Computed example of a mutant assay.
Amino acid sequence: MNARLGEKEGFAGLVLRLRAEGINDIDLLTAVEQTPRTQFVPSQYAASAYSSRTIPIECGAFMEGVDLAVRIIDRLKLKSGHRILEVGTGSGFTAAVMARLVERVLTIDRYRTLTTEAQKRFDQLGLRNIIVRHADGSAGLQGDGTFDRILVTNAFPSMPRFYAEQLVSGGSMIAPLLVGEDRCQMARLTKVGSRFETEILFDAPYLPIVPRLSSYL
């Protein structure tokens, strides 16, 4: 099977699974289709690119299964004029999909290797509305204004309110929360005026946030 056919078959299977979950957003599915996932996974895992399994990547990090990645983006309820902050670039797949749906994505990661490789992938796909930054996301991000949506892909012991303060009124943030030694849950926090409303969404296999920039990778 050639790579292009495998990509199409993998995407078709994903669509069937997502529709079974009630995810039918045509714009979102089109954005995923236009973002070849095999370009984001290590070559030895290409056959698993469209599976629900987690995939190891550089620096000891991992990619969430594609079903989970798309489910999270769906829960963000993105709109074309939105500005997005992503904490945890990883392979860059999630940022690339979101960039096809919104005005701008700012994505940060503590590992220079990950940000460098992600930038190469964005350039190859012609995605010019993504800003990639090598930065420590463990204590918030200052000086970049406010965002309509924030996505955090490393787990905190409690909802990181320092990010919530960077939301516009009516904006929302999705982040994994540690609820035990080996369990975390995705939660959505929505800013309503000066208040914040929190909703637990579903379990997710994310690693705890690590402070400070990586010294070597």
Score class of each variant (00 low, 15 high):
I150R: 12
Q124D: 13
N129A: 02
I84T: 01
L125S: 07
E64L: 14
I55P: 14
L76R: 06
R128M: 04
D136G: 11
D123L: 11
D74H: 15
D74W: 14
T116Y: 02
S138E: 09
Q119L: 09
R104T: 08
F122N: 11
A118F: 05
L101E: 02
T116V: 05
A139V: 07
A47T: 12
R71S: 14
H82G: 09
Y111P: 03
K77L: 13
G145P: 02
L76Y: 08
V102D: 00
E58D: 03
V97R: 00
I131W: 02
R83P: 01
I108M: 10
R83K: 14
Y50L: 09
N154G: 11
I108L: 04
A96L: 02
L114V: 07
D67E: 14
A69K: 10
D148F: 08
T107E: 03
R100H: 01
G90E: 05
F147W: 10
K120R: 15
A99M: 04
L151Q: 05
G126D: 06
Y111H: 15
E117A: 14
R149K: 14
D123M: 09
F156K: 00
A49R: 14
T116M: 06
A47M: 11
F156N: 01
I108R: 07
G145A: 04
I130P: 04
S91D: 08
E58V: 13
A47N: 14
R71I: 06
L78R: 01
F147L: 07
V97T: 13
I150A: 10
G126M: 11
D148G: 12
T107G: 04
A95E: 03
R110C: 10
R121F: 10
L68R: 12
G140M: 12
Y111K: 04
T116F: 08
E103I: 03
T89I: 05
T115P: 00
G92F: 09
F156C: 02
G60A: 06
S80G: 11
V132T: 13
T94F: 08
L141V: 15
R110D: 05
I55S: 12
D144Y: 15
S91F: 10
N154L: 04
H134V: 06
K77Y: 12
A96E: 01
A95G: 15
R110F: 10
I130A: 05
H134R: 01
G81Y: 02
S52I: 01
S51W: 13
Y111V: 03
L76I: 00
G145R: 07
A95D: 06
D123K: 15
D136T: 03
A135K: 11
E103Q: 11
F93I: 14
V132A: 03
